[in-house]
């Protein structure tokens, strides 16, 4: 049924147009524009214009003449000077590398975890699926900052019961050391977003026609076989979607390291690309280089999403 529905909607526009002209009704007209105008206006104001502003200011340089800029400010086209400065900054490059390492580990772990949880919850073997779904999903409703505040209390020696418990069995845990703090952040991110990604996958699982499961049952397929041959292939789009969003999210990481900064000396002001851009803009007041950094972050995110999508498309064809 769903398939036929898709086919009709695919053909919808053209057949409707024919019918419309046949019936002589003047449907459409300005209506679509009226409907989309509010969205479009706001989209232009908050997406298109800022992007243009960012690209524009990333190519300009503001010079203040006089000791305190009292002799006026001149803005001039600077070609790739700001980009060169951003790319020459070893700390900024290191922060991107750090996020790549973070993403290579954290994203697969989270996607695998949320897929397993979704499959288990949707299998008939799970008791109280509603409760578990709510429990896993709960952290998504807790803002990243507040989640980080929470976890930071569980990371700080003296306050953390986790460290106390581990010490009781002879384990020395240091969540905030230079080599471990990145994974402590990964834990917070995984904790926050696993339930959210799980919900996207569950939504896709629910759209699988029941007939397929029944056919599999008739064929005597095991749960494992159903998961591998029916569910996993059909939730691929959801997996691709959640992975792309996770990649983009990884490069945007900001709140968690910024909040942990006060308890973890290992996190410097350029720990993540976004933290770096924020510092450049508001601590050094160099908006142009910050704009160049923002553009670079977006480009890297685009590039990674694109490469991932290409990779998955090639594998499916």
């Amino acid at each position: 049924m769903t398939a036929t529905e898709n086919i009709t909607t695919e053909q919808g526009p053209s057949s409707r147009r024919r019918r419309r002209t046949g019936a002589g009704s003047r449907a459409g007209g300005s209506a679509p524009w009226v409907l989309i105008a509010p969205f479009l206006a706001l989209f232009i104001l908050t997406f298109i214009l800022p992007i243009i502003v960012a690209i524009g200011s990333s190519f300009t340089r503001v010079t203040r003449s006089g000791l305190f800029g009292e002799e006026g400010v001149t803005t001039q086209f600077a070609w790739f000077q700001n980009y060169a400065q951003a790319l020459a900054d070893g700390n900024f490059i290191a922060s991107i590398g750090r996020m790549l390492l973070f993403g290579v580990v954290q994203v697969p772990v989270m996607i695998v975890l949320c897929t397993i949880l979704a499959l288990l919850l949707e299998s008939a073997s799970a008791r109280w699926p509603g409760f578990f779904r709510a429990a896993y999903f709960l952290p998504y409703g807790i803002p990243g900052v507040i989640a980080t505040i929470l976890w930071s209390f569980l990371y700080v020696p003296g306050l953390s019961p986790v460290i106390d418990v581990a010490a009781a069995v002879g384990l020395q845990l240091d969540f905030l050391g230079p080599s471990t703090v990145l994974w402590s952040i990964a834990n917070i991110v995984t904790w926050t977003y696993t339930g959210y990604n799980m919900m996207i996958i569950i939504a896709q699982l629910k759209s699988i026609p029941t007939e397929l499961y029944e056919a599999a049952k008739v064929d005597g397929a095991s749960s494992w076989r159903v998961a591998r041959s029916i569910q996993l292939p059909l939730i691929r789009p959801a997996l691709v979607l959640t992975t792309v969003f996770s990649i983009i999210g990884t490069l945007q990481l900001f709140a968690e390291p910024q909040v942990l900064q006060t308890v973890a000396p290992a996190i410097d002001s350029q720990y993540t690309p976004n933290l770096s851009a924020y510092t450049t803009a508001f601590a050094y007041n160099d908006y142009n280089v910050a704009a160049a950094q923002s553009v670079l972050i977006a480009l890297v995110a685009f590039l990674l999403s694109f490469l991932f999508l290409r990779f998955t498309n090639r594998r499916s064809s």
Partner: peptide, 14 residues
């Protein structure tokens, strides 16, 4: 696909 934080800084300038 545009990271929300990428637009925040230029949005502030705007």
């Amino acid at each position: 696909l545009v990271p929300g934080t990428a637009t925040a800084l230029p949005l502030f300038l705007l």
